[in-house]
Structures are given as structure tokens and as C-alpha cells.
């Protein structure tokens, strides 16, 4: 059994070990002990805060194996991507160029540095050490169920930046064509210095002020636009199933796609059901399915996966003793359920 819960101070050492195993090209977890401690403190304060409007809260979740209480993964959601500065992304613009005299008309793609996504809530820092697709689903989507439980803490719009492709090694062709010319350093060095952030004012100091005309980029850089790193394929698939779509935004460093969705398009919001907890006796009949189940409360948030009898026509959800213990819920209490 695996459980998703808010991060705690005692997780710092395990998070540090987790970050050490993560591929720096793919993952945006904080890496140094100091940064991890900061992130954990911020998360604890955020969960405890009374929020009217989303601001600089960041909610950090961990995936825990209930067998040995080890940390199997981590994921975060930021209430407002640009809370401490603007969140920068490239927007794909289409510039139409028409010459009536010559009867020529064509569209030219250009990338413009923008801060359009600043007010969105951002999914970030997804990292899974062990566990299969089901655990990845649990870890990734628990964040959104929390958002569905506490919508006032988040924006109506969400996005997640996927890591872009590299040439097999540490080189990003997209970075080499744009960022390197302005930062004058390697991709990973820049990521390290900026700590994976996209909301620092130095971005606007260094990155191009004028649109980047796509036809002027080398073919490899053009090919990398909107492509996901193979290591990010799983989170990409999970978020796509959840309702996220890649549209006109991409990462300014590696050209990875930015997935976006309005909350109404997300299954965690539109297809989740609130049910009362009942004790599973073993005598219930009906077809069973896997569900993501979270406690319907903001404090002591818990999420697990459970096989339950189809909930569509039922007012309650029958949970085993173990699941109820994991979720820390009593009979009659409400939970939020969504089919896997």
C-alpha cells in the first residue's frame, strides 16, 4: 500500500536522498539540504495558512510506502506560479505575413517571452523513485484532488511544465540555440544557478526581449520544441489523461511543452464524487474498480488507492479497515473519490 500525505519536517533526509537519485535533466526537485528544508517549511506553513486568495503558498506531497514508511516519491503544487515575480514562458505566436502585390501569404511562427501563466497554479517537482504506474497516478493526481477539496487555495487554471528533450546526454538543442547565447553557460549550469525556477527577474534581464523567429532556429532546436524528455513520458501521459493539453506555451530553457487546463476540464474536479465512508464487510456485491480516495478535509490530508464496488449509484463507499486507517477516517465521514 502507498499513501500520499503532506510533507513533514521529518522527511527532509529522505527527500535529500530522493533528490540525489533524480535525473537533473528531468526533475525539478529542490536539491540542496537548505533548499529542501525551505521547501518543507513553506509547505507546512502553506497547509496551515488560512487562504482567501492564492498567493505564494506551495503544497508539497510525498508518496510513502506503508510497508516500511520509506519515501517513494514527491510532488508539489504551487498556488500561484508567479507569486514571487512573474512566471516566464515562451508563447508560440503566429505572425501572418501577407503581400498582396506578390500574392504571397504565409505564417511565420515566433516565440515571445511572456508572463501569461503567472496567475495559474502550477504542478511541479514530480519525482517517483519506486512504484508502478498506479503509484504515479496516485502521486500526481492527489495534488489535484487536494485542489478540488480546497479550490479557494488555487487558481481556476493549472499548468505543468514538462522537461524537454536532450540529445541523449546533457545537451538541450533548444537551450543551445537560444538560452546559451544569452546566459553563456551550459543548460544544467544555468538550471542549477536558477534552481529550476522560471519566476526570477534575471530571466527578463537575460532572455531575449524580442520574439524569436522559429525559422531562424537550427533544425534540431525546432524539432525539440514541445517535445517531452523520455524520462517525463509517464507524468505527461498521466496529466494528459487527467485533462491537461499542450497548447501554445513552452519552457524558455529546454522548449519542453507546458500542459494547461481549466479546472473544469480536469477529472479530479469534474469526475470526483463525495461519498460517506462505510465499513467493508466482505458481503457487498457488485463490480469493483480502482479509485483514488482522499479525505474530504484540508488538514491531515491523505490519499490512497483502493478497489471498491462501483460508486456511481451508491451514497457511501465501503472501505476496509486498513484503508480507513491509512486515510485516518471514521465511518460516516466524507471522502472524495475518483475512478483511476
Amino acid at each position: 500500500m502507498f499513501l500520499v500525505r503532506p510533507v513533514e519536517t521529518s522527511d527532509v533526509a529522505a527527500l535529500e536522498a530522493l533528490a540525489a537519485t533524480a535525473d537533473p535533466v528531468v526533475h525539478t526537485l529542490p536539491r540542496t539540504r537548505k533548499a529542501i528544508e525551505r521547501a518543507v517549511e513553506r509547505s507546512i506553513a502553506s497547509f496551515a495558512a488560512r487562504v482567501d486568495l492564492p498567493a505564494d503558498e506551495s503544497y508539497f506531497f510525498v508518496l510513502e510506502s506503508e510497508v516500511d514508511q520509506s519515501l517513494a516519491g514527491a510532488a508539489a503544487i504551487f498556488a500561484s506560479a508567479g507569486a514571487s515575480g512573474a512566471f516566464y514562458a515562451f508563447r508560440k505566436d503566429v505572425l501572418q505575413q501577407v503581400s498582396r502585390d506578390l500574392c504571397i501569404s504565409h505564417n511565420v511562427h515566433a516565440l515571445s517571452l511572456c508572463s501569461d501563466l503567472s496567475s495559474h497554479s502550477q504542478l511541479a517537482s514530480f519525482c517517483l523513485r519506486k512504484g508502478k504506474e498506479q503509484q504515479a497516478q496516485l502521486l500526481s493526481r492527489a495534488r489535484l484532488l487536494f485542489a478540488a477539496l480546497a479550490p479557494h487555495r488555487f487558481s481556476e487554471k493549472f499548468f505543468a511544465a514538462m522537461s524537454g528533450t536532450t540529445d541523449g546526454g546533457m545537451h538541450s538543442p533548444f537551450w543551445d540555440a537560444i538560452g546559451r547565447k544569452f546566459f553563456r553557460m551550459d543548460f544544467l549550469e544555468a538550471e542549477r544557478m536558477i534552481e529550476g525556477a522560471r519566476n526570477r527577474s534575471l530571466i527578463v534581464e537575460l532572455m531575449p526581449h524580442y520574439p524569436v523567429y522559429v525559422p531562424l532556429l537550427p533544425a534540431e532546436a525546432q524539432a525539440a520544441m514541445g517535445k517531452v524528455h523520455p524520462g517525463g513520458a509517464l507524468p505527461f501521459r498521466i496529466l494528459s489523461q487527467e485533462g491537461f493539453v499542450p497548447d501554445e506555451y513552452m519552457d524558455i530553457f529546454d522548449g519542453g511543452p507546458i500542459l494547461r487546463a481549466h479546472r473544469n476540464a480536469l477529472r479530479s474536479f469534474s469526475a470526483s464524487m463525495q461519498r460517506r465512508v462505510a465499513r467493508e464487510s466482505g458481503a457487498e456485491h457488485g463490480s469493483r474498480a480502482s479509485y483514488l480516495i482522499t479525505v474530504a478535509r484540508e488538514e491531515k490530508f491523505r490519499a490512497v488507492l483502493a478497489d471498491c464496488i462501483d460508486l456511481e449509484l451508491s451514497e457511501s463507499v465501503h472501505l476496509t479497515d486498513q484503508v480507513r486507517r491509512s486515510l485516518d477516517v471514521a465511518e460516516g465521514e466524507p471522502v472524495l473519490c475518483v475512478k483511476l
Binding site: L95, Q97, V98, S99, R100, D101, L102, I104, V108, A110, A177, I178, K181, P208, Y210, P211, V212, Y213, L216, L217
Partner: peptide
Amino acid sequence: KKSFIAELMPRHPLYVAY
């Protein structure tokens, strides 16, 4: 037919480094 230059050339400044 010079007008076509303005119509078809990139309107925004370009970085030579590209």
C-alpha cells in the same frame, strides 16, 4: 515592388547571434 519587403520581412529586431 519594395512594399513586399515590409510585408514579408521580420518586423521585430533580430539578434545576430541567432
